[in-house]
Design a protein around this nucleic acid. Structure first.
Lengths: 226, 226
DNA sequence: TTTATGTATTAACAAATTGTGAACTGATCC
DNA sequence: GGATCAGTTCACAATTTGTTAATACATAAA
């Protein structure tokens, strides 16, 4: 399935469960990050900035409730969706979990379909959008949210494909992108276009930016360099 | 407990359950309305305009899923919280319930404390909606409370959809809103309108405002810019 | 120097997207 | 009933974007 642009962090110490959930949510179109204990969960949450965090409660290092409290105490995670997925089915844990600020509390075992339904329901209600990050390299700035490219503070107007192509290259400066990779990322797997198409777009970007920021690697591809 | 100013409609055909839930939610500070079958639920929902509807699934006249579908089809109930409280614990019912547009699905028996926690959790998430504030950008001012737009201190009359569209764009100046996002935010997820509808409204806004404040980003969407 | 390979450039063409005026549908209000 | 208005759709024009093909250029190997 096509990506929904939503990132989910799953924290559980049982590799099997982790894998099952990851597989199913990925198939549903979510981007998934995993953690196998409480400390890793906190760390990865800060790194990956997920839209939803699925937490087991009984985990090594820090338990799920502690993770939830730590994150909820930070402004950055006040709005993040949190779902407890745990074997603890007693009333006390359930109430405590929700009162810690979680948005849902689900007990194991649970069928993947049901879990996906609940995850979808959470997103449906919140409709939280992923925050794409602004790339800034030297005097060049690329803002995907605004669809805006600036050189020396001056606005440059790029067409859609041009923008996507530049964003791809600039997202990993120095890395060479094969022509095939570029085609897959910007044009998509199904679309078939000729080889020269990429060149033409590259040329337009160079032209519009007025910068020598895209290097040709003959016989290989292109890379971004400033 | 003092009233929370939130109204909850509970529909269940078992008087005992109805009473227990009503008692507990009232004690928690919610205003409670009850219905004992599907038809009554629909009727009372329209009358009372509750913030949350708790639906049993197996009820006389109309079952809970039908009630949910009927209500969700109406714009007035698109945002209303709906929670299924049912004895049906099988995977199919669970998934179907959530896909009908419910926000939570809970199986009986359930302890009052847990139910209250889940209800609180639902309201906690929904109340975080950003308050609608007056937007002021340059010589343009948009007041969602008064439904009023002013340019250079002069009143401009916009229709509802026009206003909502402008408010959406202006709420995050510079950010590009995809056509899909606009449809979801202004028209709602279920409504289907033609491609040109957005354009026409955009044009009317541009026309009425007499400002060049909405930029077209071809192939992507629109953004507000002053 | 020639040849082979791969890229740059350009113009022309095809495709996609948006702008616009007119017309249609319901609601609502004299 | 008639008038008005919001909301929508449609047909078509205007515009922009994407692609190709032809040619020129650059580089390295033979």
């Amino acid at each position: 399935m096509e990506s929904k642009g939503k990132k989910i962090l799953i924290a559980d110490d049982e590799p099997d469960i982790l894998e099952i959930i990851q597989y199913n949510l990925s198939k549903e179109g979510y981007d998934v990050v995993t953690a196998k204990d409480g400390d890793e969960a906190v760390g990865k949450a800060k790194m990956a900035r997920p839209d939803l965090i699925i937490l087991d409660i009984m985990m090594p290092k820090k338990n799920g409730v502690e993770v939830c409290e730590i994150l909820r105490a930070q402004p950055a995670f006040k709005e993040t969706l949190i779902l407890f997925l745990t074997a603890l089915s007693d009333e006390g844990s359930h109430v405590r979990g929700l009162e810690t600020g979680a948005d849902d509390y689900v007990t194991k075992p649970i069928s993947p379909k049901v879990l996906i339904s609940r995850v979808n329901a959470l997103f449906r209600r919140v409709n939280k959008e992923p925050e794409e990050k602004v790339l800034k390299i030297e005097n060049l700035s690329i803002d995907p949210a605004k669809f805006e490219v600036m050189v020396d503070g001056k606005d440059v107007t790029l067409a859609k494909k041009e923008f996507e192509l530049l964003y791809l290259l600039a997202s990993r400066p120095g890395r060479v992108f094969l022509r095939n990779e570029i085609l897959n990322q910007v044009w998509g797997n199904e679309v078939i276009v000729g080889d020269r198409t990429i060149d033409v777009h590259i040329r337009k970007i160079r032209q519009k930016l007025g910068l020598d920021c895209i290097t040709t690697v003959k016989g290989v591809g292109y890379k971004f360099n400033l």
